[in-house]
Design a protein around this nucleic acid. Structure first.
Lengths: 249, 249
DNA sequence: TTCTTGCCTTGACCTGAATCAAACGCCAAA
DNA sequence: TTTGGCGTTTGATTCAGGTCAAGGCAAGAA
């Protein structure tokens, strides 16, 4: 089973280029973000859409639950999380986002954000005014298709998390989590077997519906089995096939 | 906390009228489904979009995971569920749909369905060819907005389920489930405090990440507390405020 | 009517994860 | 260098929910 806990291929609409002004057409991640069939003229219109990039420091909020929804944000650099805080104080991480991923989709439904989004490390975002994106999508069909796919994949991703939370034991959840990160790093050109976790054990636990101690123990156990090596936030996957098998029990 | 486990207000795009041909403009649920600001001309175009209604018998599949995605379906009558079956035999119900709800959104992301959809009782659906809907949405702006809201709300709904699965104990999950049904019945003009469950304990359990015995015990316990009365599939909510409070522990 | 079948409830017991607690290691500030 | 604090690991214990098992009830078939 290959869980798609988060977009393995970046689903970004666009990201801007640092030196020039915000030019999606020049962006390094362009081919990952936008369908190739977009005509140069249309591309220029998309370029104009993207607002000035926003820099964030570790710990800063991008938006909070309850705030009016205006932008979606493409992650250019850095690492982010989204979480829901319930009235009775429960806190659930709903996702971790890295370069090319999109933040803010939770606001579309009711024009109000339903999550908090926080930077886990310093980073940069490209804000895209959603109303204008919608308008442009009405005129550029491949852009509309693309937007729908982004929303559709988010729904599938959430279903996968539901399976994880509803039907897997602790160690399986951790294995699925690591495999998902592995894929996402791989698709961004980083090592799929050697990477750093940007989130704490508590955040991992919250995302996976586990206590931080349980998450920690699951990591330790996978290490004892020789499947991974983990030291604090540095993870090495030693036996990818066995990590896969750790999910099917 | 009011969990929005599924659309409390029907999010349908359209449903057809039984006697005439498929005419959304005449449908009893029209005002629930489509934004009011749609012009009569546009309305006629939407009417033409909806394919012939499809009748389903209890137990029949609407679509299965892996099948190509072509339609989304508006529930006209009946009761449906969607579930994911993993390679290793795990089965997780991802949602229950009633009149006005939409089936098939799981196919948008990859043009392949990622869930199975099954009728829990006899019912009728209005299939809408998604490619054509997308095309029309490019021309009718309120329709496009509406479509995006449907997708956006589905994402928020899934986040709420994630909170439920990740952070609530068994009895809280059951209470949240009942409250959600209550709201949805209420918004359709049925009693919010007296209704029939259409799904088995096993399906409820699967949706909520519980074993069927645990689900059954939670129902029994809420009954012992005098909060609900339940006999097999017939539920009466006796004390709505206490049922609410049963969630915050 | 009786039989069959599927679904639900309840009890007894077991286990995986939560909880409580202590200690360690790393980093940053003093 | 020391000190303090945060995040992590690990151990001991508890408990919610899973598992196994038995029995009941309702509806449809024979």
């Amino acid at each position: 089973m290959l869980l798609n806990l988060s977009e393995p291929t970046p689903a970004a609409i666009t990201v801007a280029f640092p030196e020039t002004r915000n030019a999606c057409s020049l962006c390094i991640q362009r081919e990952l973000c936008l369908p190739l069939e977009i005509a140069p003229d249309d591309m220029a219109r998309i370029d104009r859409l993207v607002a000035a990039r926003r820099r964030l420091k570790r710990g800063q909020h991008i938006y909070r639950a309850g705030e009016p929804f205006k932008y979606i944000f493409v992650v250019r650099t850095g690492y982010f999380k989204t979480d829901v805080l319930t009235e009775d104080g429960r806190d659930q991480v709903t996702g971790f986002q890295m370069s090319g991923d999109i933040l803010g989709l939770d606001g579309i439904g009711n024009e109000i954000h339903s999550c908090n989004a926080v930077a886990l490390e310093d980073g940069e975002l490209c804000p895209i005014p959603f109303a204008e994106l919608e308008h442009l999508a009405g005129q550029i069909h491949p852009l509309q298709r693309h937007l729908h796919k982004i929303l559709g994949r988010e729904i599938v991703r959430d279903h996968d998390v539901m399976v994880l939370l509803g039907a897997m034991r602790a160690e399986e959840r951790i294995a699925a989590f690591l495999l998902n990160l592995s894929q996402r790093f791989a698709s961004r050109g980083y090592s799929p077997t050697d990477f750093h976790l940007r989130m704490t054990r508590e955040e991992i636990g919250s995302y996976l519906g586990l206590q931080l101690e349980t998450a920690s123990r699951a990591f330790s156990h996978l290490q004892e089995e020789g499947i991974i090596a983990i030291h604090i936030k540095h993870v090495q996957i030693l036996d990818l096939p066995r990590l896969h098998r750790a999910i099917g029990r």
